[in-house]
Amino acid sequence: MIGFSVNGKRVDLDVDPSTPLLWVIREQLSLTGTKYGCGMAQCGACTVHINGEAVRSCVAPVSRAEGKSITTIEGLSPDLSHPLQRAWLEEDVPQCGYCQSGQLMSAAVLLREKPAPTDEDIDEAMTGNICRCGTYPRIRRAIHRAAEMVAKGGAR
């Protein structure tokens, strides 16, 4: 049995510890917002937080989650109220939307550690997340916008 918490809920699972966390999240826990894109930490679509840090769940064995706190896109906020989600709405970022869970989860770590990120900070944080539709310019704008919201105290 492997035990950890997901979006605040405790789970105990009987699962092969070498199974990538991604597939446990998607299949056992039915949290399908976290996406499979490459299986080799190349695209970032599977990004979740383990104890607050961005992790590519497609290459992290579920054993790594033991005793830890996992946050997936479903847990970023209960009601689209995270400043990044609000900024993403305002900038109308997604196209196909498949990569956006991972983009948001990466951006959330960036924003927490650098509340006023520069373009360079954005490059450094977000270059591991591929968007095939090409929403990068809007992602960049939305991150800046979310930072402004936080600075103005307009969001949590």
Binding site: L31, S77, Q85, G97, Q100
Partner: peptide, 12 residues
């Protein structure tokens, strides 16, 4: 379709 693409609800 933006809201459901920001919280993992959009079904692919």
């Amino acid at each position: 379709d933006t809201p459901e693409k920001l919280n993992g609800k959009a079904e692919f």
